[in-house]
């Protein structure tokens, strides 16, 4: 049966050797039995079911009936969907580069710092351990207008006019994004630090002997060798930003995704369609679209990063 069994069958007594292989086989499938059942019932079956639900008109109160591509047609004709689609990508396009840029710069310099290294690293890492739902409330408070808003109070101290933040269609999305970037930095910095550590010191020494400048070392040695780390972080954080929900939901509970839907991401639209309007079939179609977006983005990124 298995490779091991075949190889060993030729060397020793036929019966006893085969039975060891078979025993191995039984052990292996025995170990896998419960997990496989789990994956089939909790992962694969629901995946197919999600596709199926997306072509039905299931609501909480009404059993599912097949409606063809009706949900998709409705979705693509809904201006709200396109707005939400745009928002979701703005979260991604702003969030990923900004957070990676900051975390790389911090990691690059932190790597060279010895004095209070652990302490400073801890300062950056702490936000990663917080609960997004809780911190959204802290940020919500920060963004208030005067007299209670911390940020506007600081701005007023510098004589800068007060900003509307969450009460603006242009500033609200970056304002909601900030806590997500903030909370993710610690993780990315740690991963970058690990990546930087993994680069052999001898490379740098050789480069310095060759008289390369710090900038050239960064460009020619550090960045290329960091590529696997970078690929991982780009894909990982992109998926995170495309699935943003906790912050958006909590930072504006009275008008989630507002004002005027300017901060609403796809996951919030799914949540509202499913659990405020009970249109489960329609929501399922939205989840399928989310799945396709994530799939395409990950594939494109992996492709781009590999080719370069």
């Amino acid at each position: 049966m298995s490779v091991v069994a075949h190889r060993e069958a030729t060397t020793g007594g036929f019966w006893s050797r085969t039975s060891l292989g078979q025993k191995q086989l039984i052990w292996a499938w025995g170990f896998l039995a419960v997990p496989l059942l789990f994956y089939v019932v909790i992962r694969f079956w629901p995946t197919f079911q999600a596709f199926y639900l997306s072509v039905t008109d299931w609501t909480i109160t009404k059993p599912a009936e097949f409606v063809g591509l009706e949900n998709y047609k409705r979705l693509f004709a809904d201006p709200l969907f396109w707005q939400v689609f745009r928002n979701t990508f703005v979260y991604l396009i702003l969030g990923t580069p900004i957070s990676l840029m900051i975390s790389f710069i911090v990691a690059y310099y932190l790597d060279r710092v010895r004095f209070m290294h652990t302490f400073i690293r801890a300062l950056y890492f702490l936000p990663f351990l917080t609960t997004a739902a809780a911190m959204a409330w802290v940020w919500r408070w920060f963004y208030q207008p005067v007299p209670i808003g911390v940020i506007n109070d600081v701005l007023a101290g510098f004589g800068i006019p007060q900003q509307p933040f969450l009460r603006s269609t242009t500033q609200a999305l970056p304002a909601v994004l900030a806590p997500a970037v903030w909370a993710g930095l610690g993780f990315q910095i740690i991963i970058f630090l690990a990546g930087l550590r993994a680069i052999p010191v001898t490379y740098y020494e050789a480069a310095r002997i060759d008289g390369l400048s710090e900038g050239a070392i960064l460009r020619k040695i550090t960045l290329p060798l960091l590529k696997p780390t970078l690929v991982f972080l780009v894909v990982f954080s992109s998926i995170g930003f495309l699935r943003i929900f906790d912050q958006v939901y909590n930072i504006n509970t009275n008008d989630p995704g507002g004002p005027l839907n300017s901060t609403k991401p796809l996951v919030l639209m799914i949540y509202q369609t499913a659990f405020s309007s009970y249109e489960m079939g329609y929501a399922a179609a939205q989840t399928v679209v989310l799945f396709l977006i994530l799939l395409v983005i990950s594939l494109v990124q992996l492709r781009l990063m590999r080719d370069r």
Binding site: R43, P46, A50, L53, V267, T287, V288, L290, F291, L294
Partner: peptide, 13 residues
Amino acid sequence: TLMIPTEMLVLPW
């Protein structure tokens, strides 16, 4: 299954 976002499974779950 890594490719499948939780959000898609939430309704069937």
